[in-house]
Design a protein around this nucleic acid. Structure first.
Lengths: 231, 231
DNA sequence: ACCTGAACACCGTTCAAGT
DNA sequence: ACCTGAACACCGTTCAAGT
């Protein structure tokens, strides 16, 4: 899937074939570009997680030298910002929702937001540390418009938006962080049952085992929207 | 404030004084211990942020060799886990709240939670990536108990707890990430006004400038508790 | 305009060794 | 039981240079 550098490969297999065919770059790569860098960064993040993204590895995948990246991109932080925002584009509901049904519109956008982030779990732990890119701002703008035209007064608009944002971010980040490797999950599970007598109520309600995340997300969001609805 | 290694200092100043007094370790440090390591890690994180914590720098502050840390601690991840949980201890309200006032109890614990994290902003961006330590679990246990004894049915308990957790985490993480250096803030502000015509509703409601974070937090939390109250 | 390799100043951690 | 320095395999980024 990823382009391999021929140099690395030939070093790995010390075959005795007398002339190492130079194996001109396996595919002639398209030229480097911001878009290609970001797309590849997302691939790499999906495959290796947050710590897996390295300027050197990124360049490797792109079949270029490390320093070539710096022509198109400021630095590693920049790559993170771009990758994050690129993953959060919103295309709207499949077919338009009738205009009065503001509740459904909000639900669709926020569920899509959560789903996008869960498709790229690194994005959840990245968001808290990064700037708001254009795609994030667009979603906030849309949310503002929906709520505003649904009759939420200007005075309550910010509280409403931030409450929804907080809820979605918290839910998504939590969900993503529970979605770890099996090793970690086993370790956590072990520690919990070992300590179960210290946390009896949690234990009884199976708080940490209950994994109907999607259902809980929708229910909680419903409650919140009830509270926020213009009276 | 931090202990300086005498070796480093003497190398830095090639004074001609014939005998470099060995300057026995500036203070005779207390012996290394898990507790001292964690406390110093928190200091370092407070001072330098998430990227500022380095095993080497940590050892430096402790006046020990880097590898000495590894006797007391598994690895860097371990240090992060311990530092995070150490900052989230809950001591309860200053004077006991009368037992029926469950709403106040919830408010106090959650506001304290948020405040603790904001006192150490790195904790907010760390939480989503780390395991739940004992102090976090204790808070969840307490929350469960309060809600349960307030009459929330077992069936609704998990939704209630996760909704509150989500809200608090989202709010705190968001707040902490907006609380960045002035440089970043200026940059963000610039970009926003430059793009203001693309996000008119946000612009109008001053969503990103409104910084009554504490008030918004309480209001939203109130709405959520209304929705969660046993009927 | 776009790409490059060498070099610098760092990292976390393994290992074999000291007391 | 506790601590150590040397060494390894990495990092991100500066710089001076190539086309």
């Amino acid at each position: 899937m990823a382009a391999k550098r021929s140099g690395a490969r030939s070093k790995r297999s010390p075959r005795i074939g007398e002339q190492q065919q130079p194996v001109q770059e396996p595919r002639n790569e398209p030229p480097l570009s911001r878009e290609r860098i970001v797309a590849t960064a997302v691939e790499l993040l999906d495959a290796q997680g947050l710590d897996g993204l390295t300027m050197r590895r990124l360049a490797d995948r792109l079949g270029s030298g490390v320093m070539s990246l710096y022509w198109h991109v400021d630095n590693k932080e920049d790559v993170f910002d771009l990758a994050l925002d690129s993953v959060l584009e919103y295309r709207g509901p499949p077919q338009p929702i009738e205009s009065q049904a503001w509740r459904e519109k909000v639900f669709h956008m926020l569920e899509d937001w959560r789903a996008s982030m869960l498709r790229h779990p690194w994005s959840a732990s990245l968001l808290p540390r990064r700037a708001l890119g254009p795609n994030i701002l667009s979603r906030l703008e849309l949310l503002s418009k929906i709520l505003s035209s649904a009759g939420v007064a200007d005075a309550g608009l910010n509280v409403a938006i931030w409450s929804l944002w907080n809820y979605v971010m918290g839910a998504t980040i939590t969900r993503a962080s529970f979605d770890v490797s099996d090793d970690d999950r086993n370790a956590a599970q072990q520690r919990l049952t070992r300590l179960s007598e210290r946390y009896p109520t949690i234990e009884r309600s199976r708080l940490l085992l209950d994994n109907d995340w999607d259902g809980a997300f929708r229910e909680g969001l419903g409650l919140l929207l009830d509270g926020l609805s213009p009276r």
